[in-house]
């Protein structure tokens, strides 16, 4: 695994510079039952294909970002700082 992630601040960098933050998923509302929170905490979609993910640029700008990655080819289709783009 040595693909590149385009960091919005730092440009193309090796995946080793980043911490993986998991799939982007909306948290349940505060009124949601415990079961929803358990699912949110422990279940993953784990798509074989394109998915939106959190990444933290640990060795670079130290900011959180989101990347849209094809988990099969490891191609990163786009990346942006949260808030820059409304999904």
């Amino acid at each position: 695994m040595s693909f590149l992630i385009p960091c919005p601040n730092c440009g193309n960098r090796s995946v080793y510079e980043f911490r993986f933050g998991g799939e982007v998923q909306a948290p349940p509302t505060s009124a949601a039952p415990p079961g929803d929170w358990q699912k949110h905490r422990f279940n993953r979609v784990n798509a074989a294909g394109v998915q939106a993910e959190w990444w933290f640029h640990r060795s670079g700008c130290r900011q959180w970002m989101q990347a849209v990655r094809n988990t099969v080819s490891n191609e990163v289709l786009e990346s942006f700082l949260p808030g820059d783009k409304q999904e």
Binding site: R19, F56, R58, Q63, W64
Partner: peptide
């Protein structure tokens, strides 16, 4: 430390 700082930064992402 690193984990906590990242956790805090994560929580304020896009909150303004």
């Amino acid at each position: 430390l690193d984990f906590v700082q990242q956790w805090l930064e994560w929580q304020i992402c896009a909150t303004g």
